[in-house]
Structures are given as C-alpha cells and as structure tokens.
C-alpha cells in the first residue's frame, strides 16, 4: 500500500534510547549489574553504593554530560568483560524489555516501512544496547564503548563519547559514510541535552520530551510524539474544568 520506500532510500532515523524508546536509563543498567555479584554481601554493598551515588550522578548530569560520563562509568572499573556481556541478555529481558515504550516498536516499524534506515544513537554501553537493537530490528547501533585492559574495565570510555554535541558529529560522519541525506532524515529524542542531534536533521521529532525540549519543540514547530500513550482500552473522561483547560493551553 505504501510507496514511500524508494523516496526515502537515502534517509535515516536516529533514535536516542534512554527516555525516548525505553522508560529507564543507564543508571538502571548499572544497578542491575551491581546487584548481581557472586557474593551476596558484595551485591548488597554495591547496590547501596549505587543508591548513594544517585544524587551525585544526577547533579553531574545536570552540570555536564561529559562529567557525568566520567564519574558514572568509573563505577564499572574492575568488572570483567565476559561477565558484563553475559549478563547483558538478562539485563535486556528483565529490565529493558518490560520498559520499552508501548509505541516505540511501532514507530520504528512505521519508519522502516517508509524505507528509512534505522539507527540507535545511545549514550549507554554498546553491550547493553545490542540485545535491544536486535529486538527492535534496527540497522545500526552507535553507543558508548567501555575501555577494557586484559578483559577488565578501566572505568573509562573510548572516544568519541556518544553524548550531546558529539552525537550530532557522529551522525554527520555516519551520514557521510552511508550516503545519507540528513535533510531527509529524522531524529527522535526525549532530552533537551540532545538538541544538537535534532538540529542536524531535516525532520526533528521530540519524543516523550522533558519540559525544556517540549517548549523548544513548540517554539520550533517540531512534532511531539508521546510513545507512552497507548490507544485507550477503556473510556477516558473528556478533560473537565474550564480553569484546567485554560491552564493547560
């Protein structure tokens, strides 16, 4: 029925993942690993440490995504590569899969049906994203890579970091390599910090946006998608109350 596949053969759709396609973020993944150590005491200890670090992570994220990455990924130091990779499938099944937004897969299928190349661009670690990429059936995955020495994590990320403005650079490089026309491409993200990735494509779309991005999208007339909304199965009430209507507008 659709005749779009030829039209968009040089187009790509770039998706941020955390908050855009799934409800959780990289801290959830880290907490999963922290809670699955060989000894119960070590698991408990790391879980408590993770919980206590959350305010630090939050503050670092607010100040600079670069600082956040440096502080956050240091927590992986000393963990073995095979353990992280082996647990990734379990992480996906237990944590990520139940938290995929209801309409995320449909959005990707819709886009693929239009002949658009599907690419995940995530600040999460590549091995945690691979099962999700397979599940969603995307063409490519661009994610952060942890540095390993002798198969043990150093707690540092390999460059380039996938975050903020670098995402836009990576997308440009990807487009050049794959002969993608960015003016005819899409980008989906939930966060204002990903403004650069929206700015480099012709069809930016705010997806479950935070307050700042929602406001920006309204100003720039970008479409806003809420993937958390499933078609209603039971009747919802018509929005009531004149005052509330006025406030909402």
């Amino acid at each position: 029925m659709h005749r779009a596949s030829s039209k968009y053969k040089n187009s790509a759709a770039f998706y941020d993942v955390d908050g855009t396609l799934i409800k959780i973020n990289i801290v959830h993944a880290f907490a999963f690993y922290a809670a699955r150590h060989a000894s119960l005491i070590e698991s408990a200890g790391r879980s408590v440490k993770t919980a206590l670090s959350i305010p630090v992570f939050w503050a670092a994220d607010k100040l600079s995504r670069k600082w956040f990455n440096e502080i956050f990924y240091r927590s992986y130091e000393g963990q073995s590569e095979d353990r992280l990779v082996v647990l990734a499938d379990e992480l996906f099944e237990d944590v990520i899969k139940p938290n995929i937004y209801p309409r995320a897969k449909e959005l990707i299928e819709e886009s693929r049906r239009a002949g658009v190349r599907q690419v995940l661009v995530s600040g999460a670690l590549d091995f945690t994203m691979k099962p999700l990429a397979r599940y969603l059936g995307v063409d490519d995955l661009i994610a952060n890579r942890l540095e390993f020495v002798d198969h043990y994590a150093t707690g540092k990320l390999k460059k380039p970091f996938v975050a903020g403005a670098t995402k836009a650079d990576i997308m440009r490089a990807y487009a050049k390599e794959h002969a993608i026309d960015l003016a005819e491409s899409w980008a989906y993200t939930d966060s204002f910090s990903d403004y650069p990735m929206l700015a480099v494509v012709g069809h930016p779309t705010a997806c479950n946006p935070d307050l700042r991005l929602r406001s920006l999208a309204r100003s720039y007339d970008w479409p806003v998608l809420d993937l958390d909304e499933e078609p209603a199965r039971a009747v919802s009430r018509r929005p009531q109350g004149l005052a509330r209507q006025i406030r909402r507008s």
Binding site: K7, E106, L107, E110, A114, Y188, H203, L225
Partner: peptide, 17 residues
C-alpha cells in the same frame, strides 16, 4: 505532498495518536 504523507512521525501520530 508525498513527503508529508510518508513521514513516519506523522503516520505514527495519525495511526496511534
């Protein structure tokens, strides 16, 4: 016209929004 018609974001918004 076709560009707007086949835009996946708009299709998604029509079909499920």
């Amino acid at each position: 016209q076709d560009e707007l018609a086949y835009n996946p974001s708009y299709i998604e918004m029509y079909r499920r929004g």
